[in-house]
């Protein structure tokens, strides 16, 4: 027998539930994020982490200790963290002479690193520095990406995908119109900066159905520049983006709806056997009593012969 893998078996019902929750699901909930620090962190990056944690809040956890991690050299400790906390997204702050005010944003797939991008926090103004009233916890923001650069380079494309993943919270079918109260805008400038701004949305009457929108900046206000990045391997990304069979929309064939809204279906009927068709009954075509008797006895003899053959076969074999 080969070497057995250790099987984790729950001893309690609650433990079993926890393990079941960790198994792959067809429909996944909101992605959780983990915020933590590297070896050394500047005050700037620390408070930025805190602010982004506040924005992401119900789906986030934050670690407060320092960690001896250099993520671009060895990502294993981060993978372990993310596995422990069940968080596919992470944000790590660090500060060194070579790379001051450093922020790494990345994500995991199946507890292994998928992609990450390192950003330099050039300037930063926190949530506290803006006087405007804050937004409700857990609202889904509008994400606005300004600038044609977002679709030009691979890094920015990936960063856009990461930012959407980070802030979009969850896929929903419906959205409450009055509940839209937060906009995050990401601006890519021609000189290679990425400017993050966050606004509160104020809906005002405009006279027509759609309201007029006013924005109030609530912070944080951050200017990033790109540093190192690790783009995902193509195979892994394709694997990660696979859609479950259950969620794929299959095209329904032979069903159509006309202008009046009634549904038409086209169905397939097998070939008709003309010889067994019941035609009009007539007295002249009826069988006589003698004919019917003869037919019946014929069937019976055939059955008897069949039986005999079967019993002979059984005796032999």
């Amino acid at each position: 027998m080969s070497v057995m893998q250790r099987v984790v078996k729950a001893t309690t019902r609650k433990g079993k539930k926890v393990l079941m929750k960790k198994e792959p699901q067809v429909i996944e909930g909101p992605k959780r994020a983990l915020f933590f620090q590297g070896r050394k962190t500047s005050e700037k990056v620390r408070s930025l982490l805190k602010d982004l944690y506040d924005i992401k809040k119900p789906d986030a956890s934050k670690l407060s200790r320092k960690n001896d991690i250099t993520i671009f050299e060895n990502a294993k400790p981060v993978e372990d963290f993310c596995k422990k906390h069940e968080t596919p997204l992470f944000m790590m702050g660090s500060h060194s002479k070579k790379r001051p005010d450093n922020l790494v944003v990345g994500r995991m797939y199946n507890y292994a690193l998928l992609d990450m991008i390192e950003l330099y926090v050039e300037s930063y103004e926190g949530l506290k520095e803006f006087a405007a009233s804050k937004i409700t916890l857990g609202t889904k923001p509008c994400l606005v990406f300004n600038g044609p650069q977002w679709d030009l380079s691979d890094e920015l494309k990936q960063l856009k995908s990461i930012f959407i993943d980070f802030f979009h919270r969850e896929y929903v079918e419906n959205v409450r119109l009055q509940g839209i109260e937060h906009t995050i805008s990401f601006n890519a400038t021609p000189d290679g900066k990425i400017l993050l701004r966050s606004y509160k949305v104020v809906l005002k009457k405009s006279g027509c159905r759609t309201p007029r929108i006013e924005l109030e900046e609530i912070g944080p206000r951050v200017d990033f520049t790109l540093r190192r990045s690790k783009l995902p391997e193509e195979d892994l990304m394709r694997e990660a983006c696979r859609k479950p069979k259950e969620l794929k929309v299959t095209k329904k064939k032979n069903i159509s709806t006309d202008e009046l809204g009634s549904t038409h279906g086209r169905i397939h009927i097998g070939k008709q056997d003309i010889h067994k068709l019941q035609t009009r009954k007539m007295k002249g075509l009826k069988k006589t009593a003698a004919e019917r008797k003869a037919e019946k006895s014929k069937v019976r003899t055939v059955l008897v012969v069949n039986n005999d053959i079967n019993t002979m076969k059984k005796k032999r074999g």
């Binding site: 792959p24 699901q25 797939y109 993943d165 079918e173 419906n174 119109l177 983006c241």
Partner: peptide, 26 residues
């Protein structure tokens, strides 16, 4: 739009942006 419990909700079109999953397809 439709009304759900005193709130007006808009029905969003299906998602177009492809985002990676957290774990493999079961």
């Amino acid at each position: 739009t439709e009304r759900v419990e005193e709130a007006i909700v808009a029905k969003l079109p299906p998602q177009k942006t492809v985002l990676p999953r957290m774990k493999p397809v079961p």
